[in-house]
Simulated scan of single mutants.
Amino acid sequence: MLLEQKKKNRFLFLNCLYESSNGDTGAMFDMWEVGKELKLNSDETSQIVDYLIGEHLIESRALGGIIGLTHWGIKEVEQAIENPSKPTEHFLPLNIINIGTMTNSTLQQGTTNSTINFNYNTQTAVDIEKIVSQLNDIKDSLNLSNELQSELLSEIQTIEIQKKSSKPKSIIITESLKSIRTILESVAGNAMTPVIIDQISKLIGQ
């Protein structure tokens, strides 16, 4: 691939994150899904992400290729948009790149393994609070192994930390809820576990 095309693809990737998140550093994306959106193969996606991370324009947020924009990445895109005839520190002028828009994009914020996570809002906050409260009520009576008990407590703590955050990340809460559901599915004989499992499944939509 020609160097000019590589530079174009790097900006297209960064711009895809910017437009899909509306310039929000709190949004997280699956790098492989972004690559598919831009019709890049896995090697091209990996090289682009390595470059953008190396230049501090994006950052890794979680295992499995979960990434997000940095403040510097947002500034780079906005600088390019404001001065389309001028190159930025890392990219060619926009009038050469001809990026178009992501208006018809199917990319979802906060996705992992093609799973679309719930939107964190007032209602889901209430639902999560209810689930956490129920878990705290039964956690000591589940007869879990030490390892599973420790994992359950860790996942509950992760959710509680996210709840207190100014920008709770639905992808992190979703993964914790999925882990909790798996733990509860291994427990027999507690009347509340099927109820909580059902609540979690309805909340995360799977």
Rank of each mutant, 00 (worst) to 15 (best):
E4H: 12
H90I: 00
N95C: 11
T88M: 08
I96G: 04
Q149Y: 06
F11N: 00
E59P: 01
N136E: 15
M192A: 14
I96V: 10
K36T: 11
T88Y: 06
Q206Y: 08
E55W: 02
I81M: 06
Q123Y: 14
S166D: 13
I204D: 12
K164L: 13
N119E: 14
I196K: 03
C16K: 14
N22F: 14
L3Q: 07
L152M: 03
K6H: 11
N98W: 04
F13Q: 03
E82R: 01
P194E: 04
F13L: 06
K39A: 08
T122L: 14
I131G: 03
Q157A: 13
T112I: 15
N119P: 04
N113K: 13
I48Q: 02
L3D: 00
L203A: 00
L52I: 12
I99K: 11
C16S: 15
Q79Y: 08
S165Q: 09
M102R: 08
I180M: 03
T182P: 00
T103V: 15
V132W: 08
Q149P: 01
S114L: 15
F11I: 02
Q47G: 09
S150N: 06
N83Q: 05
G65L: 09
D137Q: 05
G65N: 08
P84S: 12
G54W: 13
E55L: 03
D24M: 03
T193R: 02
I156G: 10
I48F: 10
T88C: 09
K6F: 15
E160N: 12
G35K: 11
L3M: 07
E44V: 03
T182M: 11
G205I: 02
Y51G: 01
P87K: 05
M31A: 15
L148E: 14
T158W: 07
E175Q: 15
K7D: 07
N143C: 07
S186C: 04
S201M: 03
V132L: 11
P194K: 02
N9Q: 14
T115I: 03
Q157C: 03
I172V: 13
E19T: 12
A62W: 09
A27D: 02
S60K: 06
N98D: 14
V49T: 15
D24K: 07
K169V: 10
S105D: 12
W32G: 04
A191P: 08
T182K: 04
S186I: 05
E76G: 01
K167R: 14
D140L: 05
N104R: 01
I74N: 01
Q199H: 04
E82S: 12
S133A: 12
D140A: 06
Q109I: 14
A62V: 00
A80R: 03
L92E: 01
K86Q: 13
S20V: 10
G110P: 03
G205P: 02
T182W: 07
L57Q: 00
L12T: 09
A191N: 05
D140K: 04
F13R: 11
E155Y: 04
W72A: 10
K202A: 09
S186W: 03
I138H: 05
T103E: 15
A188P: 01
I97V: 15
P93V: 07
Q108C: 00
I171R: 10
G100A: 06
T122D: 15
D43F: 11
S42M: 13
T124K: 06
E33I: 09
I58K: 08
E89I: 01
S42Q: 14
E155S: 04
A62Y: 12
H90V: 00
G205V: 02
